[in-house]
Design a protein around this nucleic acid. Sequence first.
DNA 1: ATGGCTATGTAGCATAGA
Length: 254
Amino acid sequence: MKLAAWNVNSLKVRLPHLLEWLTRERPDAVCLQETKLEDANFPLDAIEQAGYRAVFSGQKTYNGVAILARDAPQAVEAGIPGYADEQKRVLSATVGDLRLVCAYVPNGQSLESDKYRYKLEWLAAFDLWLDAELKRHPRLAVLGDFNIAPEDCDVHDPKAWEGQVLVSPPERAAFQRLLGRGLKDSFRLFEQPEKSYSWWDYRMNAFKRNLGLRIDHILLSPELASRCRSSSIHVDTRKLERPSDHAPVVAEFV
DNA sequence: ATGGCTATGTAGCATAGA
């Protein structure tokens, strides 16, 4: 069994890449972020023709999340219950015997920004809710763009990034709180190449120079973590024509 | 070198991403 998370940065633009990747990799489920599409414009036909069912929660221009799976997603829930948020950032569904949470954590912009306060507040609500979800769903996976590089080894130049948004201590503490709930960072369950990243700036030839950050993650409940056999980042998609600035992250299970 | 690139909405630039 194979699960994936991919911030596609516009599903409209990235649809050919996605379809090609689905056909080649045949994941059982994929969580997409930044679809940037209203639900009425979701390319459901093309995705169904590729052999996938889909549920989605989108909006114009910004944000937007979707879950694609070979088996129909059930018990679909959008957002964080009890946390009012106009922004479409969370979608949950049951696929087979798994509970999947697709998440697009706010970026935060800069430490002085209102968006940074929103990010921390959002993460607090997310953490509280996930604690309850973990108790309800022993086989829980949280997949998406967390917009947090958990450790200095997830940052190409930790000195240059020190204290900035995506690596600031409060954000990293929020990520550690999720791990404290019992969730495991699937990527770090295994030996990994040094300088492994999931996002590279479009500018300054950042990808060619591997100036990246690891901010996209698959977190697993203890039961799922014990079944996980590998985790990797599909860097090759970043080499395509008109790529997303994020690469898919993948976890495989027995 | 606080720039640079990409996508969107909308019709020349503004906003956001990370």
